[in-house]
Design a binder for these strands. Structure first.
Lengths: 334, 334
DNA sequence: CTGTTAGCGCTTTCAA
DNA sequence: TTGAAAGCGCTAACAG
């Protein structure tokens, strides 16, 4: 591979000049630039990005940590981030945290050690105060789907409390009063907030929160299956089921159907996230839209603005969930 | 951030010695090693991976290119690769090709320019001969889900012809003779092979291939919708529908149900890939298992063995698809 | 507008 | 077993 040195020799200029044309540094005469470019083409020269990074202390790469590489939610998130960053000539290094505190720490350490210019991370297990410590690091770090007190400017988040409220309110307004709830893992802030919203809606309509109608799932299909199974075995009957995400709703629907429960007539179900396949399951799932893709974009923009100093970028930190009405909720006839 | 130089001063040894303990180079006395390690801890020293890369000409990173970041198929692929590589202390740089020739070229160029030690790519648009040229590059490059003549040792692939054959044979054996087929984009080798298998099964049972029962989709839900809509409007009736992937099968199912077609009694449907949600749609989709996760693992192992010279790794280049029987096929009563 | 010259932080001969 | 020293390929003052 040709180096900058060979280019400079062939073009009859100095190293510095070659470097200037590589970096589009303005102060190069057109004639010189042409000479250099010709030499570069002739040699098939391509800058060594490692050397560039070492010398400039910039890698043009941003580290991403998601919980899982597969899974519709994180797919959307990554896609949103990558699209924006790539368009700006930056690239992403992706790693996973698997929602485990230790692995999340390892992932962040790893990304920092790769000299990323910035990090965009979706952390679920590490508590807020440790995050605040991490945020002191030389590497700027931004958080998705999470609002950390004191670090608001580094967060892009969804109003999950509102989403949880919306979901439950929606079924209540269809006449349901016996409403079961399958929550996500309670160490995850998202899950907590959604649950809080659920309780607020209940309270608003003077409905009690009943432990017999409550189950904590794992945010996966199995959580939905296990949840509805448990709920069905409790003494308390219910006509509606609110799930803290679409995967669990899907799992619950499959189980319900297998056990002769007609959907949505015998049981109304609402999900959360509006992941791609929610409209392809049967009945089509009514759910709460979580604009993950847009949030991914915004997180990337935040980096572009703060770290790469791009101008004219508007940042929106807080996103609002919206109701997506489809076919999985039946109006309860009195 | 502390550098190796400061560590060497504090430990009272040379740079070279510090470097040796970083790299577990054997020839260091225990006493010296201890001194150095103490100094490293004291300074909170962490090697600068960029500098390491520049000096050693090794980045410990492997570049991955997939078509999409979201999508169940690629999620599985990435997860398989990353899990294996990460366990070996290597990491991944991920980029996308979007199944477009130009973008795929750009993606590969980009990864090479990042000095990846190797590439694992899922290319769909670039033709074989260009791939052979790319394979000459200094950066070793491996291919998933594709068999390129002359580059067999660099490929991890599925026998898609067999899968296509299996799918169609399965519905034939349930008594169906009027079988529609929704193919994937025909520039993709996978799609071609699956179609070839379909035709072989047809031929084996002396069934004609009828253009009226054939549609080319886009491998997405919309392809399935558009496909079945078109097929239904053709004069030729059919009792079974073979889809070249699960997404399209799902789209077709949704459309069919919306139009009063009972599944699977009025129409049997079989998919391909066995992506996660295929078991959660209704009716549960009978499909052909595509062991993407395992293939991802294997691609990573190939890199570990060939590039990082790890011993005792068994490589399997060719994978076989298998039938996953679920509920979307009905036996045709004569 | 262009060239000179220090490094960036580390690895890797080569000698000792 | 250890150290000295020459780069890896490039950027970024600074001087001209």
């Amino acid at each position: 591979m040709a180096t900058i040195y060979e280019v400079s020799k062939l073009a009859g200029v100095s190293l510095a000049t070659v470097s200037r044309v590589i970096n589009n540094n303005t102060r190069v005469s057109d004639r010189t630039r042409l000479k250099v470019e010709t030499a570069m083409n002739e040699l098939g020269y391509r800058p060594n990005s490692i050397a560039q990074s070492l010398a400039s202390n910039r890698t043009n790469s941003v580290g991403i940590m998601v919980s899982e590489l597969n899974g519709a939610f994180f797919g959307q998130m990554m896609a949103g981030i990558e699209a924006e960053l790539r368009a700006a000539g930056k690239h992403v290094i992706i790693t996973t945290g698997h929602s485990e505190e230790e692995k999340e720490h390892a992932g962040i350490d790893f990304l920092i050690s790769r000299n990323c210019d910035a990090l965009i991370v979706h952390v679920e297990a590490i508590p807020d105060d440790e995050l605040k410590v991490l945020a002191q690091s030389d590497t700027p770090i931004y958080f998705t789907s999470r609002l950390i007190e004191g670090l608001e400017d580094s967060c892009i988040y969804l109003n999950n409390e509102l989403g949880g409220y919306l979901a439950t309110k929606t079924v209540i307004e269809q006449g349901h009063t016996n409403i079961a709830y399958i929550a996500g893992p309670q160490f995850k802030p998202d899950s907590q907030d959604r649950l809080t919203g659920h309780k607020r809606a209940l309270a608003e309509y003077n409905l009690p929160f009943d432990e017999n109608l409550y189950f904590i799932g794992d945010f996966k299909e199995t959580g939905g299956r296990d949840g509805i199974k448990q709920l069905l075995s409790n003494p308390k009957p219910f006509t509606a089921l609110v799930c803290a995400n679409d995967e669990m709703a899907s799992g619950a629907m499959t189980y319900a159907r297998e056990h002769g429960i007609a959907l949505p007539n015998d049981l109304s179900i609402i999900g959360y996230d509006n992941i791609i396949f929610s409209r392809h399951i049967y009945p089509k799932l009514t759910t709460i839209d979580n604009p993950v893709y847009e949030m991914g974009h915004m997180a990337a923009k935040l980096v572009l603005k703060n770290v790469y100093k791009q101008k004219d970028i508007e940042i929106k930190h807080s996103f609002e969930p919206t109701l997506i009405s489809r076919d999985s909720i039946a109006q309860l006839k009195p």
